[in-house]
Amino acid sequence: MNTICIMCPMGCGLTIERVGDEIKVSGNTCKRGEVYGQAEFTHPTRTVTTLVRLEGGGVASCKTALPVPKERISEVVAAIGKLTLSDDAKIGDRLTVGDGEFVFEIVITGTPSSC
């Protein structure tokens, strides 16, 4: 498959193919591109950024602590949408979201009071 690497603004064009047991990535100019290419070929993931409600009515921004499977992005956003955090949430706060078999961690990235 052919794709464009999203790991940095260079946007290298990647060619990814299975050679025997190996997944070979070419066109990348760094190690991150190789890791990304292999993940894109086997199981694409993305870091999701969205908003979380605050008690006082405002919103804080957050991201998933790790990239999540691409096909679960809408589940991730829906689960974060059910949360309400206290107004003293701070940048860097971490919390675990979800239940059962799908659990992920989010990090608060911005709050109205961070200044």
């Binding site: 940095c8 603004p9 950024t49 969205t50 908003l51 921004s61 991201k63 990235t109 911005g110 961070s114």
Partner: peptide
């Protein structure tokens, strides 16, 4: 609030805020 900042300057990918 999206990712993609700081990879060059901080050698670490982070969000705008």
């Amino acid at each position: 609030i999206h990712q993609g900042f700081g990879l060059h300057y901080f050698k670490e990918e982070m969000t705008g805020p």
